[in-house]
Write a protein that binds this DNA or RNA. Structure first.
Lengths: 156, 156
DNA sequence: TGTATTTATGTAGTTAACTACGTAGTTTTA
DNA sequence: TAAAACTACGTAGTTAACTACATAAATACA
């Protein structure tokens, strides 16, 4: 990280968060590839949600993973193309599309589980510093829910 | 934040970092607007660097702010369009383009300084939790420089 | 000194999220 | 019970970063 950004510090925090996110995502991609697994890190929240909860609608998934529904739809499209998930109309409510994992999806998850474990260990070793990044994020997320950056500046 | 992501925890960290970055950037936009200042948060690193260091080339700015040069070029284009910076050829090295702030740029910075101060205070109140996010990021950045996520997983 | 390499800049296209808007079912209400 | 409002889903276009490739100037080297 550069001198000037370090000096200006906190004002460039958004930039730094984004860069960190990007590096982690890219390394994630490499790790899946290194294990011979065709899987994108960005698919994780959807796949994991469906694995945990079974059949869900588009909006339920979007809410669960915290994305907007258009973002979710584009992830679902990719996953359907990979034949990792499938969808069918909800008989009770014709507007809804119910998504679930395919056999292939379930099998891939079994294959990924040990890799997820290793990733978890690697991330833990990386993030477990004096100020724990994971906990820090959780704390900030909670504070933002009560009162965001904008409101805090306004009410100074 | 949703249940499933919380449960899957650390594996979705990249997603969470990105979302946090995004929220902070958006609130930053709103704050500038609320103060009647026409300025994008993403311009901050470039403007601040030029303010601190004076005349710099494209690559020098890119290195300083930690972006790739194409990203930097597109920021520079926007800032030139806003007439906040100007450029001229380097006489010593005809490949280089030297960027500097215009009068308008310098004036805008004077106008923004008190707002930056308030933002800094608001961010401090938001980020100063038990596990300080700013310090956590710095620590993780340092660890990643020594050995990234990919290498850590590989060498487990 | 002419050729090869490196460096600085630029362009094109990609990515992964977003907002805005549109349509079709479902539910509420006058 | 017809109209209004809401909800679910989808598409189009935007954004802010990126990678890959191209070109021109400067430098190194045979």
């Amino acid at each position: 990280m550069s001198n000037v950004i370090d000096a200006s510090g906190i004002l460039a925090i958004s930039t730094r968060l984004q860069r960190l996110a990007d590096q982690l995502r890219k390394d994630g991609q490499l790790i899946y590839k290194a294990h011979g697994i065709e899987f994108e890190p960005k698919w994780f929240p959807v796949i994991y949600t469906l694995h945990q909860k079974g059949q869900l609608s588009v909006m339920e998934i979007a809410t669960e993973i915290g994305y907007t529904h258009p973002s979710t739809i584009s992830l679902l499209k990719e996953l359907e193309k990979q034949k990792l998930i499938r969808s069918k109309k909800d008989k009770q409510d014709e507007r809804k599309r119910l998504l679930s994992l395919t056999e292939k999806g379930e099998e891939l998850i079994l294959q990924m589980k040990p890799v997820w474990k290793r990733m978890q260990q690697a991330l833990t070793s990386l993030l477990h510093t004096e100020n724990n990044l994971m906990s820090a994020i959780e704390e900030v997320e909670q504070k933002m829910e009560k009162k965001g950056f904008f409101a805090r500046e306004r009410d100074l």
